[in-house]
Design a protein around this nucleic acid. Structure first.
Lengths: 147, 147
DNA sequence: TAATCAAGTGGGAAAAGGTGGGAAAAAGGT
DNA sequence: ACCTTTTTCCCACCTTTTCCCACTTGATTA
């Protein structure tokens, strides 16, 4: 399971090293996609197969006839990338994804159960604080829903 | 699977190089057709067989009126082109398709699962922003669909 | 406290990917 | 048939990416 929070630098060649604790589980090839809430998702290839299958299964081979399906597929597939992890555990983040969440010199790398998230480190810290404050109420909500 | 986004130039001889990551899957011959939402679709010959079969299937589940279907098929078949990929991975985009989406010097090339799309790069950037804003709602929809 | 090791960072050289252009071949019109 | 124009094929350039090696820092241990 992928857990924990790390701040790593992005060097001039766009490289970011994955935390050692994530490397084994992520493997040699990963998929990066735009995520929700101003971050990027990193999936293992296995996990990505599951995700992408769910996305395309619900429709026929002619899914491009439906407008909302087209939009979503362009978002999920068009803006995804298969990325190799180099011999010492680093990856390259494509520019179009870097720009999307305003990454510069450093990134927050977060383990979230079965995926990893990449955040602009400053945005992450802000987000964390907000969530921190809401945690109690969120827990309350979730608790009620389960009943 | 075809994923990712690339901006390539169209040179004075109308040539565009396909991203290396797409070449193997696309093969030596491809089909270009007008696409939906101001773009062009590129299919592998295999994928095109599937698509064209389903489009022409008289009792397919596509809820088209017959007249609509004829029109749509003229749109898709009538303006489709079989194109060869040259030895270093470039293709020629027919002028009538180029004009259709206002291509000039540069194009966005997008992998969308089992097809590739060609966009006027500026139009793509605009489209992308719109979709980005809708992403949360789109994801919500998708989430509901899974249940 | 010095030595060692692990994890992360940086940089140079080689290779790959993308772009441009010239010459040969083909097409087209008179 | 001939000249002109377009297309095709091939080669060359250049920027970006990839691969490899080395350095730094902080923690661990003898």
């Amino acid at each position: 399971m992928l857990i924990g929070e790390y701040i790593h630098t992005i060097d001039e060649k766009n490289r970011v090293s994955l935390p050692v604790k994530f490397r084994k589980e992520l493997g040699k090839k990963i998929i990066i996609t735009p995520g929700l809430d101003q971050c990027l998702f990193i999936f293992t290839t296995a996990e990505w197969k599951k995700v992408s299958k769910r996305l395309s299964d619900s429709d026929s081979d002619l899914s491009f006839l439906k407008a909302d399906k087209r939009s979503f597929n362009r978002f999920m597939f068009g803006r995804a990338a298969e990325v190799e992890v180099d011999t010492i555990g680093r990856i390259l983040i494509p520019d179009f994804l870097k720009d999307r969440i305003g990454l510069k010199n450093s990134a927050a790398i977060i383990g979230v159960e079965d995926r990893v998230e990449i955040w602009n480190d400053k945005v992450w810290l802000q987000y964390r604080e907000v969530v921190e404050k809401q945690a109690d109420q969120l827990a309350e909500k979730l608790g009620n829903r389960e009943k």
